[in-house]
Design a protein around this nucleic acid. Sequence first.
DNA 1: GTATTAGTGCAATAATATTGCATTTGTACC
DNA 2: GGTACAAATGCAATATTATTGCACTAATAC
Lengths: 141, 141
Amino acid sequence: MVETRKALKLLREQGYRITTPRRQVLGILAEAQRPLSPYEIQDMLKEKGEYLNHVTIYRVLELLCSLNLAHKVLLAGGFVICSLGESRGCHRFVVCRECGRLKEYASEALCAEETEMAEQLGFRAEQHFSEFSGVCATCQK
Amino acid sequence: MVETRKALKLLREQGYRITTPRRQVLGILAEAQRPLSPYEIQDMLKEKGEYLNHVTIYRVLELLCSLNLAHKVLLAGGFVICSLGESRGCHRFVVCRECGRLKEYASEALCAEETEMAEQLGFRAEQHFSEFSGVCATCQK
DNA sequence: GTATTAGTGCAATAATATTGCATTTGTACC
DNA sequence: GGTACAAATGCAATATTATTGCACTAATAC
Ligand SMILES: [Mn+2]
Ligand SMILES: [Mn+2]
Ligand SMILES: [Zn+2]
Ligand SMILES: [Zn+2]
């Protein structure tokens, strides 16, 4: 996981301010380690007695995603913190179709394969995001 | 593309009725060949002087997706008709981040790679859906 | 501490999605 | 072709999610 601390550092470097809402959202995502919707994030903050307007949450998430500090995971319908510090252009997820649990990983091999495929289809691949679904260890029982 | 005719046949075989709304939605998706949201589908029908309640559209799409006759393409935020007749468990998309254009394809190699990856992460892969983004031929200019 | 302006909250509105129930329509059977 | 039955649709109400403009707040630089 890109720890919260490093994420904040990166924000600074990019010229963004370190604000309470940004800390809070990053904190929640880091704890959760599963996809959360904007309103779920709001609810989890409420449980701690903290409050954020949903508009703010949307805007924070938009920023985090633009910097690849978080991702919108579409199969699971929510946002997760990026768990790969390094791999700039490659962010992949397996999502359990039962429980929604997910894992992020990166793969050179897949990138190569996809890039080739893309070319055949007339596309130039840039960022590799992929998601696919399966059944996690727990749910296989 | 799974032509509309074949899709309807499959519906019958599965015990579903061939209804006007189902024909209409399939027709629109087949023409469009790009992701359409439920409300976009409704709008396109209106232009033909046809009307469908949005609830019906949601329900039709749900059915089509459950049978893999259509897919929800998440990066592009809409539904497309499946353009691969055969490949049951493998449906992949490249989506242009500029214009939203997309192509569906299948790949044995990617499936193998992902299945292996999944196992390492404790998942059992079943259906392979993946999406990744790039820039299409047109938008590269 | 003060000035500057990025960032937040609020209120209003828009867009999208879901549910229960009455009505219609597709299909099987005659 | 007509009829019976269940599946599918439409409607109305409601819930949820997302977006916008603007006034106010607070993070940073000095
Ligand atoms: Mn990542
Ligand atoms: Mn397909
Ligand atoms: Zn699971
Ligand atoms: Zn394009």
